[in-house]
Design a protein around this nucleic acid. Structure first.
Lengths: 155, 155
DNA sequence: GGCGCCACGCAAGAAACATGCGCGAGCGGC
DNA sequence: GCCGCTCGCGCATGTTTCTTGCGTGGCGCC
């Protein structure tokens, strides 16, 4: 709950880069005994610094060839439209991240799909799903789709 | 190297959600013996399906209050400009992700900072760093900064 | 200067992991 | 149709890793 000292920061940095190290390995990095590494890590988790530990899968290896960032603007900003949109996002496995944002668009989606066909189909479904309540602002909002080539991610 | 069966997919999905489960826990999810879970996981890693295992830290807990997505357009697309930009991105800890993309902008950055002051300072540094070789297309390119409120991330 | 608190490292018990083995299903050859 | 091969499975054991209790030392406070 208190401040983090240099050991805590080193620990966090270490597990952020590689989350499956043994206490012995960690101890060499942070220069602390294995026991103490474990105890501090336990405390850091209890205090909520570590949200969770996950495996990062290789998209290409799984046939994911397109990673797109899509800006979405809703025409209506009523509850119904928002809920319909959120529900769609939650249900769609292809949508990996969903950020609410200010500016000329309402949401920024990060989408991972196998090919352009899947991307098109997803957009199609999005339009009909949300359009059931209120249509998207316009196709211009969807024109903002950017196909992206993946660049080494910095963490 | 071959195809993935239902057990492999379940395993990947499981560790993607929670990467620090014991073999016993995994075995209950995928309905396979602990030993076999370990063996398949080992194979999946050897075959490159699992890129790595990392800890996701809580941004708020670390004083990160702003997560911004910024579109950047470069005026010149020569090697020098690109390299300067890449170098800046690699050196800046605040830039968490960097995506090269097609469309009206060249790059999409995901930035995590403590406050608006840090964000402004980062942009300032970006301009001067890249501007040393070629100026950004215009301030319009930077006008595209969106302050975002974090929404539960779907994975 | 004495006392109490807290973080540290060590060591033993507990848990989880890795590996060798035998079994049985599926498949190809005879 | 039958035999034998191969491969994936689960069990059992040895080894590593993790957890927890304990004694020690530094540091601040009274």
């Amino acid at each position: 709950m208190e401040e983090l000292d240099v050991f805590d920061l080193r620990l966090l940095a270490a597990i952020q880069a590689k989350g499956d190290m043994t206490q012995a390995e960690l101890s060499e990095i942070v220069h602390l005994s294995p026991t103490q590494c474990a105890r501090r890590l336990q405390r850091l988790r209890a205090d909520g610094f570590v949200r969770d530990i996950v495996a990062i899968l290789d998209p290409e290896r799984l046939g994911i060839n397109i990673i797109a960032h899509t800006l979405v603007g809703l025409r209506n900003h009523d509850d119904e439209t928002g809920k319909a949109f959120r529900a769609f996002v939650d249900a769609a496995d292809e949508v990996v991240e969903c950020w609410s944002q200010t500016g000329d668009a309402d949401y920024l989606l990060k989408i991972m799909v196998k090919d352009l066909g899947e991307l098109a189909s997803l957009i199609e479904r999005l339009i009909t799903a949300v359009g059931g309540f209120a249509s998207l602002r316009s196709f211009v909002a969807l024109k903002a789709i950017k196909r992206t080539t993946t660049v080494p991610i910095r963490a």
